[in-house]
Nucleic acid binder design. Sequence first.
RNA 1: GUACCCAUAGCUCAGCUGGAUAGAGCAACGCCCUUCUAAGGCGUGGGUCCGGGGUUCGAAUCCCUGUGGGUACGCCA
Length: 570
Amino acid sequence: MKNKLVEILNKNIPSLDKQTIDDLIEVPLNSSMGDYAFPCFKLAKELKKSPVVIAKEIAEKIGTVDFIEKTECVNAYINFFVNKEQFVKQTIVPMIQQGEKYGIDKSKSKGNIIIDFSSPNIAKPFHIGHLRSTVIGNSLYRIFEALGYNCISINHLGDWGTQFGKLIVAYKNYSSKEAVEQKGIQELLRIYVMFHEEAEKDSTLEQQARDYFTKMEQGDEEALELWKWFKQISLKEFEYVYNLLDVEFDSFNGEAFYNDKMAPVIKELEDKNLIKVSDGAKIVELENMPPCLITKRDGSTLYATRDITAAKYRKQTYDFKKCIYVTALQQNLHFKQWFEVIKKMGYEWYKDLVHVPFGMVSIEAEDKSKPAQAIATRKGNVILLQDLLNQAIQKTKEIIEEKNPNLEDKDTVAMQVGIGAIIFDDMYNTIIKDIEFSWSKALNFDGETGPYVQYTHARACSVLRKSNIEEYDISLIDFDLITDEASITLVKQIGNFKSAINDAANKYEPSIIARYAVNVAQAFNKFYHDNAILVDDQKLKYARLSLVYCTTNILKNTLYLLGIGAPIKM
RNA sequence: GUACCCAUAGCUCAGCUGGAUAGAGCAACGCCCUUCUAAGGCGUGGGUCCGGGGUUCGAAUCCCUGUGGGUACGCCA
Protein backbone atom coordinates (compact mmCIF):
# COMPACT_ATOMS: atom_id res chain seq x y z
CA MET A 1 0.00 0.00 0.00
CA LYS A 2 2.89 2.31 0.74
CA ASN A 3 4.30 1.47 -2.69
CA LYS A 4 1.14 2.68 -4.35
CA LEU A 5 1.34 5.90 -2.41
CA VAL A 6 4.94 6.35 -3.53
CA GLU A 7 3.83 5.91 -7.16
CA ILE A 8 1.17 8.55 -6.82
CA LEU A 9 3.45 11.04 -5.10
CA ASN A 10 6.15 10.38 -7.65
CA LYS A 11 3.78 11.30 -10.47
CA ASN A 12 2.91 14.55 -8.78
CA ILE A 13 6.40 15.45 -7.59
CA PRO A 14 8.62 14.70 -10.57
CA SER A 15 11.69 16.28 -9.00
CA LEU A 16 11.98 13.54 -6.37
CA ASP A 17 12.74 9.93 -7.20
CA LYS A 18 10.82 7.06 -5.73
CA GLN A 19 13.43 6.10 -3.20
CA THR A 20 13.57 9.62 -1.81
CA ILE A 21 9.81 9.75 -1.53
CA ASP A 22 9.76 6.34 0.09
CA ASP A 23 12.25 7.56 2.68
CA LEU A 24 10.31 10.72 3.36
CA ILE A 25 6.98 9.05 3.98
CA GLU A 26 6.33 8.69 7.68
CA VAL A 27 3.93 6.64 9.70
CA PRO A 28 2.58 9.00 12.36
CA LEU A 29 2.42 7.61 15.86
CA ASN A 30 -0.98 9.05 16.37
CA SER A 31 -3.55 7.77 13.90
CA SER A 32 -5.43 11.04 14.13
CA MET A 33 -2.61 12.32 11.95
CA GLY A 34 -3.33 9.77 9.30
CA ASP A 35 -1.85 6.42 8.37
CA TYR A 36 0.89 7.88 6.22
CA ALA A 37 2.28 11.36 6.16
CA PHE A 38 4.41 13.25 3.68
CA PRO A 39 6.40 16.25 4.90
CA CYS A 40 7.01 18.96 2.31
CA PHE A 41 9.88 20.83 3.94
CA LYS A 42 12.47 19.48 1.54
CA LEU A 43 10.58 20.84 -1.44
CA ALA A 44 10.47 24.36 -0.10
CA LYS A 45 13.94 25.30 -1.32
CA GLU A 46 13.77 24.14 -4.91
CA LEU A 47 10.22 25.37 -5.44
CA LYS A 48 10.88 28.56 -3.51
CA LYS A 49 7.53 28.45 -1.87
CA SER A 50 6.37 27.96 1.65
CA PRO A 51 6.12 24.25 2.47
CA VAL A 52 2.59 24.83 3.70
CA VAL A 53 1.53 26.07 0.27
CA ILE A 54 3.33 23.19 -1.42
CA ALA A 55 1.52 20.66 0.75
CA LYS A 56 -1.83 22.12 -0.28
CA GLU A 57 -0.93 22.17 -3.97
CA ILE A 58 0.24 18.58 -4.02
CA ALA A 59 -2.80 17.44 -2.10
CA GLU A 60 -5.04 19.14 -4.64
CA LYS A 61 -3.15 17.64 -7.57
CA ILE A 62 -3.50 14.16 -6.17
CA GLY A 63 -7.22 14.60 -5.70
CA THR A 64 -9.14 11.46 -4.96
CA VAL A 65 -7.55 8.02 -5.13
CA ASP A 66 -9.28 4.71 -4.61
CA PHE A 67 -7.38 3.40 -1.59
CA ILE A 68 -7.11 6.74 0.15
CA GLU A 69 -10.20 7.88 1.95
CA LYS A 70 -9.09 11.26 3.05
CA THR A 71 -6.20 13.63 2.55
CA GLU A 72 -5.54 16.33 5.08
CA CYS A 73 -3.01 19.12 5.16
CA VAL A 74 -1.64 20.06 8.52
CA ASN A 75 1.06 22.70 8.24
CA ALA A 76 3.67 21.28 5.91
CA TYR A 77 2.41 17.72 6.19
CA ILE A 78 0.05 15.91 3.90
CA ASN A 79 -1.68 13.27 5.97
CA PHE A 80 -3.18 10.32 4.16
CA PHE A 81 -5.97 8.28 5.65
CA VAL A 82 -6.10 4.97 3.87
CA ASN A 83 -9.14 2.87 3.22
CA LYS A 84 -9.21 0.58 6.23
CA GLU A 85 -10.77 -2.35 4.49
CA GLN A 86 -8.13 -2.39 1.77
CA PHE A 87 -5.34 -1.81 4.23
CA VAL A 88 -6.42 -4.69 6.45
CA LYS A 89 -6.97 -6.95 3.47
CA GLN A 90 -3.57 -6.28 1.93
CA THR A 91 -1.81 -6.88 5.20
CA ILE A 92 -3.71 -9.96 6.28
CA VAL A 93 -4.17 -11.90 3.06
CA PRO A 94 -0.53 -12.89 2.52
CA MET A 95 -0.25 -13.80 6.18
CA ILE A 96 -3.15 -16.17 5.93
CA GLN A 97 -1.97 -17.61 2.65
CA GLN A 98 1.54 -18.27 3.95
CA GLY A 99 0.56 -19.15 7.50
CA GLU A 100 3.51 -19.93 9.74
CA LYS A 101 5.91 -19.37 6.86
CA TYR A 102 5.01 -15.73 6.46
CA GLY A 103 8.14 -13.60 6.61
CA ILE A 104 10.40 -16.63 7.02
CA ASP A 105 12.42 -17.60 3.96
CA LYS A 106 14.02 -20.96 4.62
CA SER A 107 15.36 -21.39 1.11
CA LYS A 108 19.00 -20.89 2.18
CA SER A 109 19.52 -19.51 -1.29
CA LYS A 110 21.35 -16.29 -0.49
CA GLY A 111 24.69 -17.83 0.40
CA ASN A 112 26.57 -18.71 3.54
CA ILE A 113 26.86 -16.68 6.67
CA ILE A 114 29.08 -17.83 9.48
CA ILE A 115 28.18 -16.95 13.03
CA ASP A 116 31.00 -17.48 15.49
CA PHE A 117 29.57 -17.38 18.98
CA SER A 118 29.42 -18.76 22.51
CA SER A 119 33.02 -20.04 22.42
CA PRO A 120 33.54 -20.84 26.10
CA ASN A 121 36.84 -21.93 27.54
CA ILE A 122 37.24 -25.61 28.16
CA ALA A 123 37.53 -26.70 31.79
CA LYS A 124 35.77 -23.66 33.12
CA PRO A 125 32.14 -23.53 34.13
CA PHE A 126 29.56 -21.91 31.89
CA HIS A 127 28.39 -18.77 33.67
CA ILE A 128 26.09 -15.84 32.92
CA GLY A 129 28.93 -14.03 31.20
CA HIS A 130 28.87 -16.67 28.46
CA LEU A 131 25.15 -16.42 28.07
CA ARG A 132 25.13 -13.23 26.03
CA SER A 133 27.31 -14.43 23.19
CA THR A 134 25.38 -17.69 23.06
CA VAL A 135 21.95 -16.18 23.02
CA ILE A 136 22.77 -13.27 20.70
CA GLY A 137 24.64 -15.50 18.26
CA ASN A 138 21.83 -18.01 18.19
CA SER A 139 19.30 -15.29 17.50
CA LEU A 140 21.39 -13.80 14.69
CA TYR A 141 21.65 -17.29 13.26
CA ARG A 142 17.88 -17.60 13.13
CA ILE A 143 17.38 -14.05 11.88
CA PHE A 144 19.74 -14.45 8.95
CA GLU A 145 18.36 -17.85 8.17
CA ALA A 146 14.87 -16.32 8.07
CA LEU A 147 16.18 -13.92 5.43
CA GLY A 148 17.19 -16.79 3.19
CA TYR A 149 20.83 -17.30 4.11
CA ASN A 150 22.45 -20.59 4.93
CA CYS A 151 23.93 -20.05 8.36
CA ILE A 152 26.80 -21.97 9.88
CA SER A 153 27.20 -21.80 13.63
CA ILE A 154 30.73 -22.21 14.88
CA ASN A 155 31.68 -22.66 18.49
CA HIS A 156 35.26 -21.44 18.53
CA LEU A 157 36.13 -23.23 21.74
CA GLY A 158 38.95 -21.97 23.91
CA ASP A 159 40.60 -25.36 23.95
CA TRP A 160 44.29 -24.58 23.52
CA GLY A 161 46.92 -22.69 25.45
CA THR A 162 49.12 -22.66 28.53
CA GLN A 163 46.08 -22.98 30.76
CA PHE A 164 45.92 -26.65 29.82
CA GLY A 165 49.47 -27.11 30.90
CA LYS A 166 48.41 -25.70 34.22
CA LEU A 167 45.49 -28.04 34.37
CA ILE A 168 47.63 -31.07 33.70
CA VAL A 169 50.07 -30.12 36.42
CA ALA A 170 47.19 -29.43 38.78
CA TYR A 171 45.56 -32.73 37.95
CA LYS A 172 48.72 -34.65 38.64
CA ASN A 173 49.32 -32.92 41.94
CA TYR A 174 45.89 -32.41 43.43
CA SER A 175 43.34 -34.68 41.84
CA SER A 176 42.52 -38.16 40.65
CA LYS A 177 40.74 -39.88 37.82
CA GLU A 178 37.81 -40.76 40.06
CA ALA A 179 37.36 -37.22 41.34
CA VAL A 180 37.29 -35.72 37.84
CA GLU A 181 34.93 -38.37 36.56
CA GLN A 182 32.56 -37.79 39.43
CA LYS A 183 32.57 -34.03 39.73
CA GLY A 184 33.41 -32.92 36.20
CA ILE A 185 34.10 -29.24 35.64
CA GLN A 186 33.66 -28.46 39.32
CA GLU A 187 36.71 -30.57 40.05
CA LEU A 188 38.68 -29.08 37.17
CA LEU A 189 37.85 -25.61 38.41
CA ARG A 190 38.82 -26.54 41.97
CA ILE A 191 42.27 -27.73 40.98
CA TYR A 192 42.72 -24.83 38.56
CA VAL A 193 42.10 -22.36 41.37
CA MET A 194 44.35 -24.40 43.62
CA PHE A 195 47.10 -24.30 41.04
CA HIS A 196 47.12 -20.50 41.12
CA GLU A 197 47.19 -20.45 44.89
CA GLU A 198 50.07 -22.91 45.01
CA ALA A 199 51.92 -21.17 42.19
CA GLU A 200 52.31 -18.11 44.37
CA LYS A 201 54.27 -20.20 46.85
CA ASP A 202 56.07 -22.46 44.40
CA SER A 203 57.47 -20.58 41.42
CA THR A 204 58.45 -23.76 39.55
CA LEU A 205 54.79 -24.64 38.91
CA GLU A 206 54.33 -22.05 36.19
CA GLN A 207 57.35 -23.38 34.34
CA GLN A 208 56.07 -26.94 34.66
CA ALA A 209 52.79 -25.80 33.13
CA ARG A 210 54.52 -24.13 30.20
CA ASP A 211 56.56 -27.28 29.67
CA TYR A 212 53.44 -29.36 29.55
CA PHE A 213 51.85 -27.07 27.01
CA THR A 214 54.99 -27.31 24.90
CA LYS A 215 54.65 -31.09 25.10
CA MET A 216 51.09 -30.78 23.86
CA GLU A 217 52.21 -28.71 20.92
CA GLN A 218 54.88 -31.29 20.13
CA GLY A 219 52.30 -34.04 20.16
CA ASP A 220 53.20 -35.76 23.41
CA GLU A 221 50.72 -38.58 23.77
CA GLU A 222 50.22 -38.53 27.50
CA ALA A 223 49.62 -34.78 27.58
CA LEU A 224 47.25 -34.93 24.64
CA GLU A 225 45.28 -37.78 26.15
CA LEU A 226 44.67 -35.75 29.28
CA TRP A 227 43.77 -32.68 27.22
CA LYS A 228 41.25 -34.68 25.17
CA TRP A 229 39.75 -36.06 28.32
CA PHE A 230 39.33 -32.62 29.89
CA LYS A 231 37.78 -31.40 26.67
CA GLN A 232 35.33 -34.26 26.57
CA ILE A 233 34.20 -33.66 30.11
CA SER A 234 33.71 -29.98 29.41
CA LEU A 235 31.81 -30.55 26.20
CA LYS A 236 29.46 -32.92 27.95
CA GLU A 237 28.54 -30.23 30.43
CA PHE A 238 28.25 -27.57 27.75
CA GLU A 239 25.93 -29.85 25.81
CA TYR A 240 23.61 -29.88 28.77
CA VAL A 241 23.37 -26.09 28.75
CA TYR A 242 23.05 -25.89 24.96
CA ASN A 243 20.19 -28.38 25.09
CA LEU A 244 18.39 -26.30 27.67
CA LEU A 245 18.86 -23.21 25.54
CA ASP A 246 17.99 -25.05 22.33
CA VAL A 247 21.22 -24.00 20.64
CA GLU A 248 23.00 -26.12 18.06
CA PHE A 249 26.41 -25.81 16.48
CA ASP A 250 27.50 -26.94 13.06
CA SER A 251 31.12 -26.95 14.11
CA PHE A 252 33.08 -27.15 17.34
CA ASN A 253 36.39 -26.37 15.69
CA GLY A 254 38.05 -24.36 18.39
CA GLU A 255 41.51 -22.95 18.72
CA ALA A 256 43.23 -26.32 18.80
CA PHE A 257 41.87 -27.10 15.36
CA TYR A 258 44.05 -24.38 13.85
CA ASN A 259 47.20 -25.47 15.59
CA ASP A 260 48.76 -27.00 12.50
CA LYS A 261 47.40 -24.42 10.08
CA MET A 262 49.11 -21.29 11.32
CA ALA A 263 52.62 -21.77 9.97
CA PRO A 264 51.63 -21.23 6.31
CA VAL A 265 49.75 -18.08 7.27
CA ILE A 266 52.79 -16.68 9.07
CA LYS A 267 54.83 -17.49 6.02
CA GLU A 268 52.32 -15.74 3.80
CA LEU A 269 52.55 -12.64 5.98
CA GLU A 270 56.32 -12.75 5.65
CA ASP A 271 56.17 -13.29 1.89
CA LYS A 272 53.91 -10.27 1.59
CA ASN A 273 56.42 -8.21 3.58
CA LEU A 274 53.95 -7.40 6.29
CA ILE A 275 55.97 -8.78 9.20
CA LYS A 276 58.36 -6.73 11.26
CA VAL A 277 60.38 -8.06 14.14
CA SER A 278 60.15 -6.02 17.30
CA ASP A 279 61.72 -7.17 20.57
CA GLY A 280 61.93 -10.62 19.06
CA ALA A 281 58.19 -10.76 18.39
CA LYS A 282 56.71 -10.78 14.91
CA ILE A 283 54.25 -7.98 14.38
CA VAL A 284 52.24 -6.33 11.63
CA GLU A 285 52.30 -2.57 11.88
CA LEU A 286 49.02 -0.76 11.39
CA GLU A 287 47.93 2.82 10.80
CA ASN A 288 46.22 4.61 13.68
CA MET A 289 46.33 1.49 15.77
CA PRO A 290 48.80 -0.42 17.89
CA PRO A 291 50.50 -3.21 15.93
CA CYS A 292 49.03 -6.69 15.67
CA LEU A 293 51.14 -9.37 17.33
CA ILE A 294 51.57 -12.52 15.27
CA THR A 295 54.12 -14.51 17.26
CA LYS A 296 55.72 -14.14 20.65
CA ARG A 297 59.45 -13.86 21.27
CA ASP A 298 59.59 -17.61 21.81
CA GLY A 299 57.91 -18.18 18.47
CA SER A 300 54.56 -19.36 19.79
CA THR A 301 51.35 -18.03 18.34
CA LEU A 302 48.70 -15.70 19.69
CA TYR A 303 44.99 -15.05 19.62
CA ALA A 304 45.20 -12.93 16.46
CA THR A 305 47.26 -15.56 14.66
CA ARG A 306 44.55 -18.12 15.25
CA ASP A 307 41.76 -15.75 14.25
CA ILE A 308 43.49 -14.81 11.00
CA THR A 309 44.13 -18.46 10.25
CA ALA A 310 40.58 -19.43 11.12
CA ALA A 311 39.16 -16.69 8.91
CA LYS A 312 41.22 -17.86 5.94
CA TYR A 313 40.21 -21.46 6.55
CA ARG A 314 36.56 -20.51 6.78
CA LYS A 315 36.67 -18.44 3.62
CA GLN A 316 38.13 -21.41 1.76
CA THR A 317 35.79 -23.94 3.32
CA TYR A 318 32.52 -22.04 3.27
CA ASP A 319 33.04 -19.09 0.92
CA PHE A 320 31.04 -16.97 3.32
CA LYS A 321 29.07 -13.84 2.45
CA LYS A 322 29.67 -12.68 5.99
CA CYS A 323 31.58 -13.99 8.96
CA ILE A 324 30.11 -12.65 12.17
CA TYR A 325 31.91 -12.69 15.53
CA VAL A 326 29.75 -12.28 18.58
CA THR A 327 32.09 -11.29 21.42
CA ALA A 328 32.35 -8.75 24.19
CA LEU A 329 33.07 -5.10 23.43
CA GLN A 330 36.41 -5.39 25.22
CA GLN A 331 37.76 -7.23 22.21
CA ASN A 332 37.03 -4.36 19.87
CA LEU A 333 40.63 -3.43 19.23
CA HIS A 334 41.66 -7.03 18.67
CA PHE A 335 39.12 -7.46 15.88
CA LYS A 336 39.87 -4.09 14.31
CA GLN A 337 43.52 -5.04 14.22
CA TRP A 338 43.32 -8.42 12.62
CA PHE A 339 40.56 -7.37 10.18
CA GLU A 340 43.07 -4.77 9.05
CA VAL A 341 45.74 -7.44 8.67
CA ILE A 342 43.43 -9.41 6.39
CA LYS A 343 42.95 -6.25 4.35
CA LYS A 344 46.70 -5.73 4.11
CA MET A 345 47.07 -9.30 2.91
CA GLY A 346 45.01 -8.20 -0.06
CA TYR A 347 41.80 -10.05 0.63
CA GLU A 348 38.75 -8.12 -0.45
CA TRP A 349 36.60 -10.16 1.87
CA TYR A 350 37.95 -8.30 4.86
CA LYS A 351 34.79 -6.25 4.34
CA ASP A 352 32.67 -9.26 5.15
CA LEU A 353 34.17 -9.75 8.59
CA VAL A 354 31.86 -8.35 11.22
CA HIS A 355 32.43 -7.93 14.90
CA VAL A 356 29.19 -7.77 16.86
CA PRO A 357 30.18 -6.44 20.29
CA PHE A 358 28.07 -6.60 23.40
CA GLY A 359 28.31 -5.01 26.84
CA MET A 360 29.72 -6.39 30.02
CA VAL A 361 27.83 -8.41 32.59
CA SER A 362 28.48 -7.66 36.23
CA ILE A 363 26.74 -8.89 39.33
CA GLU A 364 24.75 -6.55 41.54
CA ALA A 365 26.31 -6.23 44.98
CA GLU A 366 24.25 -7.51 47.88
CA ASP A 367 24.46 -4.08 49.37
CA LYS A 368 22.90 -2.24 46.46
CA SER A 369 24.55 1.04 47.29
CA LYS A 370 27.89 -0.53 46.45
CA PRO A 371 29.17 -0.92 42.89
CA ALA A 372 28.47 -4.10 40.96
CA GLN A 373 31.02 -6.90 41.06
CA ALA A 374 32.85 -8.12 38.01
CA ILE A 375 32.45 -11.79 37.26
CA ALA A 376 35.53 -13.63 38.44
CA THR A 377 35.57 -17.39 38.15
CA ARG A 378 38.71 -17.84 40.18
CA LYS A 379 37.39 -15.74 43.05
CA GLY A 380 34.14 -17.61 43.02
CA ASN A 381 32.11 -14.53 42.15
CA VAL A 382 30.05 -16.24 39.47
CA ILE A 383 26.50 -17.13 38.76
CA LEU A 384 26.47 -20.42 36.96
CA LEU A 385 24.12 -20.59 34.05
CA GLN A 386 22.71 -23.89 35.23
CA ASP A 387 21.81 -22.33 38.58
CA LEU A 388 20.20 -19.34 36.94
CA LEU A 389 18.16 -21.42 34.54
CA ASN A 390 17.08 -23.81 37.26
CA GLN A 391 16.01 -20.94 39.50
CA ALA A 392 14.01 -19.44 36.66
CA ILE A 393 12.34 -22.78 35.99
CA GLN A 394 11.57 -23.21 39.68
CA LYS A 395 10.08 -19.74 39.93
CA THR A 396 7.94 -20.44 36.87
CA LYS A 397 6.64 -23.63 38.45
CA GLU A 398 5.55 -21.69 41.49
CA ILE A 399 3.72 -19.18 39.34
CA ILE A 400 2.00 -21.96 37.41
CA GLU A 401 0.88 -23.61 40.66
CA GLU A 402 -0.59 -20.31 41.69
CA LYS A 403 -2.21 -19.20 38.45
CA ASN A 404 -2.95 -22.30 36.46
CA PRO A 405 -2.66 -25.38 38.69
CA ASN A 406 -4.56 -27.61 36.28
CA LEU A 407 -2.17 -27.01 33.40
CA GLU A 408 -0.99 -30.21 31.77
CA ASP A 409 2.70 -30.83 31.14
CA LYS A 410 3.79 -28.23 33.68
CA ASP A 411 7.45 -29.18 33.53
CA THR A 412 7.82 -28.52 29.83
CA VAL A 413 6.01 -25.22 30.08
CA ALA A 414 8.02 -24.17 33.12
CA MET A 415 11.19 -24.86 31.19
CA GLN A 416 10.10 -22.92 28.13
CA VAL A 417 8.89 -19.96 30.13
CA GLY A 418 11.66 -19.85 32.71
CA ILE A 419 14.42 -20.12 30.16
CA GLY A 420 12.55 -17.85 27.79
CA ALA A 421 12.50 -15.18 30.47
CA ILE A 422 16.27 -15.34 30.87
CA ILE A 423 16.98 -15.32 27.14
CA PHE A 424 14.56 -12.51 26.46
CA ASP A 425 15.92 -10.41 29.28
CA ASP A 426 19.42 -10.71 27.88
CA MET A 427 18.38 -9.37 24.49
CA TYR A 428 15.68 -6.87 25.30
CA ASN A 429 18.06 -3.94 25.38
CA THR A 430 20.53 -2.82 22.75
CA ILE A 431 23.26 -5.40 23.13
CA ILE A 432 26.04 -2.85 23.57
CA LYS A 433 24.63 -1.86 26.96
CA ASP A 434 26.23 -3.31 30.06
CA ILE A 435 24.10 -5.55 32.20
CA GLU A 436 24.11 -5.51 35.94
CA PHE A 437 22.72 -8.87 36.87
CA SER A 438 20.13 -8.90 39.62
CA TRP A 439 18.16 -11.92 40.72
CA SER A 440 15.00 -9.95 41.37
CA LYS A 441 15.03 -8.41 37.90
CA ALA A 442 15.96 -11.62 36.13
CA LEU A 443 13.09 -13.42 37.81
CA ASN A 444 10.51 -10.71 37.25
CA PHE A 445 8.00 -11.89 34.65
CA ASP A 446 5.76 -8.84 34.48
CA GLY A 447 5.70 -6.17 31.82
CA GLU A 448 8.12 -6.17 28.90
CA THR A 449 9.40 -9.70 29.37
CA GLY A 450 9.59 -13.02 27.59
CA PRO A 451 6.74 -14.52 29.62
CA TYR A 452 4.56 -11.56 28.67
CA VAL A 453 5.03 -12.33 24.98
CA GLN A 454 4.62 -16.05 25.59
CA TYR A 455 1.52 -15.45 27.66
CA THR A 456 0.00 -13.35 24.92
CA HIS A 457 0.74 -16.09 22.43
CA ALA A 458 -0.83 -18.74 24.68
CA ARG A 459 -3.90 -16.56 25.12
CA ALA A 460 -4.29 -16.19 21.38
CA CYS A 461 -3.83 -19.94 20.92
CA SER A 462 -6.52 -20.56 23.48
CA VAL A 463 -9.03 -18.49 21.52
CA LEU A 464 -8.16 -20.28 18.30
CA ARG A 465 -8.54 -23.64 20.00
CA LYS A 466 -12.00 -22.78 21.23
CA SER A 467 -13.11 -21.57 17.84
CA ASN A 468 -12.59 -25.00 16.26
CA ILE A 469 -11.62 -23.43 12.99
CA GLU A 470 -8.63 -25.06 11.32
CA GLU A 471 -8.25 -23.05 8.16
CA TYR A 472 -9.20 -19.60 7.01
CA ASP A 473 -10.76 -19.00 3.63
CA ILE A 474 -9.84 -15.52 2.49
CA SER A 475 -12.92 -15.17 0.33
CA LEU A 476 -15.08 -15.60 3.42
CA ILE A 477 -13.47 -12.86 5.48
CA ASP A 478 -15.27 -9.52 5.61
CA PHE A 479 -12.36 -7.17 6.04
CA ASP A 480 -14.64 -4.19 6.39
CA LEU A 481 -15.68 -5.50 9.81
CA ILE A 482 -12.23 -4.67 11.14
CA THR A 483 -12.51 -0.97 11.77
CA ASP A 484 -11.88 -0.13 15.42
CA GLU A 485 -8.71 1.56 16.58
CA ALA A 486 -7.32 -1.41 18.53
CA SER A 487 -7.75 -3.78 15.59
CA ILE A 488 -6.17 -1.42 13.11
CA THR A 489 -3.22 -0.85 15.43
CA LEU A 490 -2.78 -4.61 15.68
CA VAL A 491 -2.87 -4.98 11.90
CA LYS A 492 -0.28 -2.24 11.55
CA GLN A 493 1.96 -3.96 14.07
CA ILE A 494 1.83 -7.42 12.57
CA GLY A 495 2.39 -5.81 9.20
CA ASN A 496 5.77 -4.61 10.44
CA PHE A 497 7.15 -8.12 10.89
CA LYS A 498 9.33 -8.25 7.79
CA SER A 499 10.81 -4.82 8.32
CA ALA A 500 11.61 -5.76 11.92
CA ILE A 501 13.60 -8.76 10.71
CA ASN A 502 15.45 -6.69 8.13
CA ASP A 503 16.19 -4.01 10.64
CA ALA A 504 17.47 -6.51 13.20
CA ALA A 505 19.72 -8.12 10.59
CA ASN A 506 21.11 -4.86 9.23
CA LYS A 507 22.01 -3.71 12.70
CA TYR A 508 22.96 -7.10 14.10
CA GLU A 509 20.54 -6.30 16.85
CA PRO A 510 18.18 -9.02 18.15
CA SER A 511 16.71 -6.50 20.58
CA ILE A 512 14.79 -5.08 17.64
CA ILE A 513 12.93 -8.38 17.39
CA ALA A 514 12.38 -8.47 21.14
CA ARG A 515 10.95 -4.95 21.20
CA TYR A 516 8.86 -5.71 18.19
CA ALA A 517 7.47 -8.82 19.90
CA VAL A 518 6.39 -6.68 22.83
CA ASN A 519 4.74 -4.16 20.51
CA VAL A 520 2.73 -6.90 18.86
CA ALA A 521 1.82 -8.40 22.23
CA GLN A 522 0.69 -5.03 23.55
CA ALA A 523 -1.40 -4.39 20.47
CA PHE A 524 -2.94 -7.84 20.72
CA ASN A 525 -3.76 -7.54 24.41
CA LYS A 526 -5.48 -4.23 23.77
CA PHE A 527 -7.39 -5.76 20.88
CA TYR A 528 -8.28 -8.76 23.01
CA HIS A 529 -9.47 -6.58 25.82
CA ASP A 530 -11.58 -4.29 23.66
CA ASN A 531 -13.11 -6.87 21.32
CA ALA A 532 -14.95 -10.03 22.16
CA ILE A 533 -13.78 -12.55 19.60
CA LEU A 534 -15.93 -15.65 20.00
CA VAL A 535 -19.19 -13.82 19.38
CA ASP A 536 -22.47 -15.08 17.96
CA ASP A 537 -22.20 -12.97 14.83
CA GLN A 538 -20.44 -15.54 12.62
CA LYS A 539 -19.07 -13.02 10.11
CA LEU A 540 -17.59 -10.83 12.81
CA LYS A 541 -16.20 -13.81 14.67
CA TYR A 542 -14.53 -15.10 11.53
CA ALA A 543 -12.94 -11.76 10.70
CA ARG A 544 -11.57 -11.28 14.20
CA LEU A 545 -10.34 -14.85 14.39
CA SER A 546 -8.37 -14.36 11.20
CA LEU A 547 -6.53 -11.55 12.98
CA VAL A 548 -5.89 -13.76 15.99
CA TYR A 549 -4.56 -16.45 13.71
CA CYS A 550 -2.08 -14.09 12.04
CA THR A 551 -0.97 -12.66 15.37
CA THR A 552 -0.34 -16.12 16.76
CA ASN A 553 2.00 -16.94 13.90
CA ILE A 554 3.82 -13.66 14.17
CA LEU A 555 4.34 -14.01 17.92
CA LYS A 556 5.47 -17.58 17.57
CA ASN A 557 7.98 -16.56 14.92
CA THR A 558 9.34 -13.60 16.84
CA LEU A 559 9.93 -15.92 19.79
CA TYR A 560 11.56 -18.43 17.47
CA LEU A 561 13.89 -15.75 16.10
CA LEU A 562 14.96 -14.99 19.64
CA GLY A 563 15.52 -18.66 20.37
CA ILE A 564 12.57 -18.93 22.72
CA GLY A 565 9.82 -21.54 22.83
CA ALA A 566 6.17 -20.65 22.37
CA PRO A 567 3.95 -22.84 24.55
CA ILE A 568 0.30 -22.98 23.47
CA LYS A 569 -0.90 -23.08 27.05
CA MET A 570 0.62 -21.59 30.17
C1' G B 1 48.58 9.82 27.46
C1' U B 2 45.83 7.60 22.97
C1' A B 3 41.58 5.01 20.96
C1' C B 4 36.71 3.00 21.38
C1' C B 5 31.80 2.62 23.99
C1' C B 6 28.00 4.88 27.00
C1' A B 7 25.02 9.42 29.07
C1' U B 8 16.90 10.46 27.78
C1' A B 9 11.37 10.00 33.82
C1' G B 10 13.19 7.66 40.83
C1' C B 11 15.13 2.74 38.26
C1' U B 12 15.95 -0.19 33.42
C1' C B 13 15.66 1.44 28.68
C1' A B 14 13.00 2.71 23.25
C1' G B 15 13.21 6.76 20.02
C1' C B 16 14.23 4.16 12.40
C1' U B 17 19.53 7.10 7.72
C1' G B 18 17.16 15.06 11.66
C1' G B 19 10.68 16.38 11.34
C1' A B 20 4.24 17.54 13.92
C1' U B 21 2.55 17.29 21.69
C1' A B 22 9.98 12.96 23.64
C1' G B 23 7.66 7.01 24.41
C1' A B 24 7.46 1.93 27.11
C1' G B 25 8.22 -1.22 31.30
C1' C B 26 9.50 -1.44 36.58
C1' A B 27 8.49 0.98 41.21
C1' A B 28 4.02 4.21 43.68
C1' C B 29 -1.21 5.19 43.83
C1' G B 30 -6.36 4.22 41.91
C1' C B 31 -9.83 1.29 38.80
C1' C B 32 -11.42 -3.34 35.83
C1' C B 33 -12.29 -10.79 36.42
C1' U B 34 -21.01 -13.88 36.29
C1' U B 35 -17.53 -12.67 29.09
C1' C B 36 -12.55 -15.92 24.91
C1' U B 37 -6.05 -17.35 30.18
C1' A B 38 -5.82 -10.76 35.33
C1' A B 39 1.78 -13.64 33.70
C1' G B 40 -3.65 -9.05 31.33
C1' G B 41 -6.17 -4.04 30.41
C1' C B 42 -7.15 1.25 31.82
C1' G B 43 -5.88 5.72 34.51
C1' U B 44 -2.67 9.34 37.63
C1' G B 45 1.87 11.53 38.92
C1' G B 46 6.90 11.95 37.16
C1' G B 47 11.62 14.90 31.89
C1' U B 48 17.02 21.69 31.81
C1' C B 49 16.88 14.45 26.40
C1' C B 50 24.84 15.50 30.72
C1' G B 51 26.89 21.03 29.77
C1' G B 52 28.41 24.51 25.80
C1' G B 53 28.93 25.83 20.75
C1' G B 54 27.82 24.82 15.38
C1' U B 55 25.05 23.01 10.74
C1' U B 56 19.63 23.48 9.40
C1' C B 57 13.34 26.07 7.90
C1' G B 58 13.70 22.30 11.97
C1' A B 59 18.42 18.70 16.49
C1' A B 60 17.36 13.80 21.82
C1' U B 61 19.05 12.46 16.72
C1' C B 62 24.38 15.13 12.60
C1' C B 63 29.51 17.95 13.59
C1' C B 64 32.97 20.17 17.24
C1' U B 65 34.15 20.70 22.34
C1' G B 66 33.92 20.05 27.62
C1' U B 67 32.29 16.84 31.84
C1' G B 68 31.08 12.15 34.07
C1' G B 69 31.21 6.65 33.83
C1' G B 70 33.13 2.14 31.42
C1' U B 71 36.71 -0.59 28.39
C1' A B 72 41.12 -1.44 25.68
C1' C B 73 46.07 -0.28 24.46
C1' G B 74 53.14 -6.20 22.24
C1' C B 75 54.27 -11.20 23.82
C1' C B 76 46.49 -13.74 27.89
C1' A B 77 42.17 -14.99 25.22
